[in-house]
Amino acid sequence: MIQIINTGVANIRSLQAAFDRLGEPWQLTESPSDIETASHVVLPGVGAFAAAVESIDRLGLRETIIERINTPQLATLSICLGMQLLGRSSEECETSVGLGVIPHEIKRFGDNVKVPQLGWNVVQPQTEGPYQTGEAYFANSFRLVEPPEGWGYANSEYGGQFISSIWRGRMLACQFHPELSGEWGQKVLQNWIAGETFANGGQS
């Protein structure tokens, strides 16, 4: 059973529909014990950094989520804002404290491109990883600029390179929306669920 963390601020119908199409049962959860023990956990994310941080803290889930992500043999998936939440902070709201799993600040795209980035972009793994190069749907104004040490990663190009995905063991974070990225995105979800192809990913 896939446990989707119910931060209450994300629109997750598309994600649920994608799991339904794959025949994978899911449920929404706010329970620390589910998040600790489930085979698969998703930290979804559409919406605002501050609201998501506030929701995680209100539910008392901060330490549980950090612990889970720091246990890379467990399958965890962070999507879009969910990936940004891994950072220490975000330019979107500098008073909000991110999960800090990676010591980076999430930064806004520069003025040389239209913001938000809305549309399909090429995602290119730079280390051995959970999926092949493909095109994915993005909807974001902020992004990770440098790859964190000890993680595998993929790049994309939008007014310069940014980090469009990172992974470590069976923990995968995607700035793009696999659930909205057609067949290629379904494959990313499938690979994450199966957990086979990136058992050694990221340890480059």
Partner: peptide, 9 residues
């Protein structure tokens, strides 16, 4: 539509 559609709506 959402149940079947794998692209943005």
């Amino acid at each position: 539509v959402r149940r079947k559609l794998g692209i943005p709506l």
